[in-house]
Simulated assay, not measured.
Amino acid sequence: MSVKRRLTDLFHIELPILLAPMAGAMDVALAIEVAKAGGLGSLPAAMLSADQLRAQVAAFRAAVDAPINLNFFAHTPPVPNNAREHAWREALKPYYAAYGIDPNAPVPTSNRAPFDDAFCAVVEEVKPGVVSFHFGLPEPSLVERGKAAGCTVIASATTVAEARWLEERGCDAIIAQGYEAGGHRGIFLTDDLATQVGTFALVPQVADAVKVPVIAAGGITDARGIVAALALGADGVQIGTAYLPSPESKILPPHRALLKAKTEETAVTNVMTGRPARGFINRVMRELGPISDLSPAFPLAGGALAPLHAKAQAQGSGDFSSMWAGQAAALAREMPAADLTRTLWSEAQALMARMAAR
């Protein structure tokens, strides 16, 4: 099997492997190691301030001479709904009581911000090379400003219709995110989860539907997944869950323990943040979800969970924590991120050679 160079040439990288930007699970340390190995390092920016983002980009550039992908959310900020948010607090009240938390205390503010003029100004300043979006795209003028700053623009599609929509609006490559993927679904043209399909049904359809390079994401944790994605028409892969056991990831102990135990139970849930996302099943997902009509709009659901998360984590529990992981999490191996990147690609090359020799 020949490996297409469209993606590596587009990003100016050696290997067609992109680190998935995993907000809350990583920082610049993981991005640096993937870039050192020849992949595309990514930084999740939606939970960072502009100054924090500048600092992380500076740290990346001090460590490695390579492009970096800055990832942003493109959601519409929620309209407050007092009745729904009150109902959510009422659903959580028994847990507050069990942990001795005042149920009438102010709800912490969630810090997941959409891409805006301030973020765009940072992009124009630091010129990362690649900018990616989740939940669609920001307004066209912001996309054009990113391109004018010399950035390649990519975004996640969970359906063929979304892929076409993104290409029509100027995306230089499409991330085809299958239902197996850990973390938030990039779904944006509908909120109907019945439209969501698996990676290896989605990738060939997207590859046939668009002219730009396609990046497969979801359930790709070893060489077999990489080779399968390439065979189905992808130009490269985006990998997240496979990197979570690495020493450079910032996941909390309960999350790391589930990965170490090769836990297979994941579900798509909206109770952690208000938008559907796949993660290891925890207590609140099991008892109130995984999909609940009570959950407020993204990202408000997470605010009321924050005090419970803090209390439970202090006791070594992930009962109220977002522990995102894809369906192939049990295949993840614990090794440094740079070594893993090189290993994944060398194993994929060896597998392709064996297949060609048959």
Rank of each mutant, 00 (worst) to 15 (best):
V3E: 09
R6N: 14
F11Y: 15
P16M: 06
P16C: 05
L18N: 02
L18E: 01
L19W: 07
A20D: 01
M22H: 06
A23L: 02
M26L: 10
V28K: 05
K36V: 05
S42D: 01
S42V: 02
Q52T: 08
A63N: 07
N69E: 01
L70V: 14
F73M: 08
F73S: 02
H75N: 01
T76C: 03
T76I: 13
T76G: 04
P77L: 07
P78S: 08
Y95D: 00
Y96N: 02
I101A: 00
P108D: 00
T109F: 12
A118K: 14
C120V: 11
V130W: 08
L137I: 08
P138I: 04
K147I: 08
E162W: 08
E167P: 01
E167G: 03
R169W: 06
R169Q: 00
I174W: 05
A176P: 05
Y179R: 14
E180I: 05
R185I: 09
I187N: 11
L189N: 07
T199M: 06
V203Q: 03
Q205C: 03
V210N: 00
G219N: 03
A223P: 01
R224A: 12
G225R: 10
I226A: 05
G233W: 08
V237A: 06
I239M: 04
G240N: 10
P253S: 12
R256A: 15
L258I: 14
G279Y: 06
F280L: 11
I281F: 12
S295N: 09
S295K: 08
A301L: 09
A312M: 10
Q313G: 03
S317V: 10
F320S: 00
S321I: 13
G326S: 08
A328V: 09
A330L: 07
L331M: 12
M335C: 05
A338K: 14
A348T: 00
A353N: 03
M355W: 12
